[in-house]
Design a protein around this nucleic acid. Structure first.
Length: 452
RNA sequence: GAGGUUGUAGCUCAGUUGGUUAGAGCGUCAGUUUGUGGCACUGAAGGCCGGGGGUUCGAGACCCCUCAUCCUCCCCA
């Protein structure tokens, strides 16, 4: 037997980590619920047709495919071998693989909406917190299995949805005590920029290049734009656009001068202005015209959340898209959504020491086991405490104090309850707080009403 | 898909120009200690040196292959 190991790019989460992650998950879920979003869960696997072709050529390669069962049956050998030949050519063959692991939450959501649009109440607001799988090469902060936390509203063009989603971001990060800036931009403004720099077909080139600004700097972006066949004059316009800075309103003015004479430019600026009009004066929502977001399906307002006190990539992002379910032959359902990057949020909180102490506690007390009769009595008291919602344990066997103390200490259990023959006799117990070393003798009645 | 890093005890790591029986710290277990832990002392268990091949009288160390790992790029969260 080989040494046990994890599959590449996956992780085990020990108790403390699970508790911390759950703290993040539950904070996010509470916020989603508070804004009227409803939970949705979809299967780990989808039919391969549902996923293939939805994430671009690169994406298709990163989808984990599931091998069909029963290929060893002799009557299937000939077709299986033929199919496998085609598989080797890089095609996806249903005879070999009919199913694949979920690659993100958006496409399964779209599939769900397309299948159930007759029954759903629109606008449909759902949130979904589940793992996804990608056959990517793992590296720092990148895994083959990771959680996504998405909330989307579909079936509504109202910008009020954008306002609400921005507000969810604010609320969640405030609760988690992470200082953030919520950056917004509009793809319509970027479309307008493309329009005056060579036409709409330049849009992907421009957004892909701009998206890298943070990482590679202005000069390299200009270089890349030139490589993508934009003229020096056009690159100059883009540079001016990217250099727009100042307060939100001032930035909108400057953008107006550059792209305000186009239809989509006007529209995009109007949208941003509307959303900003809902923000409090000290709001952390900030225009960032250099924000592009790589995904090409975004068509309207786009978001990205940046942590201010830690050098790390974005910890959340999202935006509006025109036609979620068109790929599944149900046209005309627009939507807008956001997503939280849980792994990075975790790293930020760990680095800034933001996890509250009470998320990391397990059981409150340990009953010592000092013999058969003592244990029976301790067990009955423990059960009564559990009825009151107090988590506790009884040591699994009668043994030396030393061992039982060390067990409690290692599990970070704050209290131990000692019931030996003396205590058994006079119906009392010794309650000891490990950290302070203080202990007191209580009657069992007092123990049952003690506030831990 | 491209480039690099590191694989030695449960964990973190030493191991000299190739030389006898591969070490330390932490952790684990037992004892000093059968009603009060953290400390101390004593002792014990724990290793196909990632795997395979080669060079050599001799390989943990050198060479080749392979697997795993982490990191960077592409792409993405």
């Amino acid at each position: 037997m080989a040494k046990p190991a994890l599959p590449q790019g996956t992780r085990d989460f020990p108790a403390l980590v699970v508790r911390k992650r759950n703290h993040i998950f539950s904070t996010i879920k509470q916020a989603f619920e508070l804004y009227g979003f409803q939970p949705l869960e979809t299967p780990a696997m989808e039919n391969i047709d549902t996923l293939m072709g939805k994430y671009g050529e690169e994406g298709d390669k990163l989808i984990f495919k599931i091998l069909n069962n029963g290929l060893d049956r002799s009557e299937k050998h000939i077709t299986a071998k033929n199919d496998f030949e085609k598989l080797l050519e890089g095609k996806t063959i249903k005879g070999i693989t009919e199913r694949a692991l979920r690659y993100d939450l958006t496409i399964p959501f779209a599939r769900y909406v397309a299948m159930n649009h007759g029954q759903l109440i629109f606008p449909y607001k759902r949130y979904q917190v589940q793992p996804v799988w990608r056959a990517d090469r793992p590296q720092r902060g990148r895994y083959r299995e990771f959680y996504q936390c998405d909330a989307d509203v579909v079936g509504s063009y109202s910008l009020l949805n954008e306002v609400e989603l921005a507000s969810i971001y604010s609320r969640v990060f405030e609760k988690l005590k992470i200082n953030v800036e919520i950056k917004i931009n509009s793809r319509k403004i970027l479309a307008a920029l493309a329009e005056i720099c060579g036409g709409a077909e330049k849009m992907p080139d421009i957004t892909i290049a701009i998206d890298k600004l943070d990482k590679i700097g202005l000069d390299k972006v200009k270089e890349e734009l030139l490589q993508r066949n934009l003229s020096a004059a056009q690159v100059g316009i883009i540079e001016n656009f990217l250099k727009i800075s100042g307060g939100n309103e001032s930035m909108l003015h400057q953008a107006e001068e550059l792209v305000g004479n186009t239809e989509s430019g006007k529209k995009g600026i109007e949208e941003l202005r509307f959303i900003l009009s809902y923000q409090a004066p000290n709001s952390n929502v900030k225009i960032d015209f250099t924000l592009a977001r790589g995904l090409n399906y975004y068509t309207g307002v786009i978001f990205e959340v940046k942590a201010l006190d830690v050098q790390i990539g974005s910890i959340g992002g999202g935006g509006r898209y025109d036609d979620l379910t068109g790929l599944f032959d149900v046209p005309g359902i627009p939507g807008v959504g956001i997503s939280f990057g849980v792994d990075r949020i975790y790293d930020v909180m760990e680095e800034l020491n933001l996890f509250p102490d009470d998320v990391i506690t397990g059981p409150q007390l340990l009953f010592f086991n000092l013999g058969e009769n003592e244990a029976r009595h301790a067990f009955s008291l423990l059960q009564q405490l559990r009825e009151k919602g107090i988590a506790g344990e009884i040591y699994h066997e009668s043994s030396k104090f030393d061992k039982q103390f060390k067990y409690a200490e290692k599990k970070a259990i704050p209290y131990v309850v000692i019931i030996g023959s003396k205590e058994l006799e006079n119906n009392s117990c010794v309650l000891k707080h490990l950290q302070s070393g203080e202990q007191q003798t209580l009657t069992t009645g007092q123990l049952l009403t003690y506030s831990f």
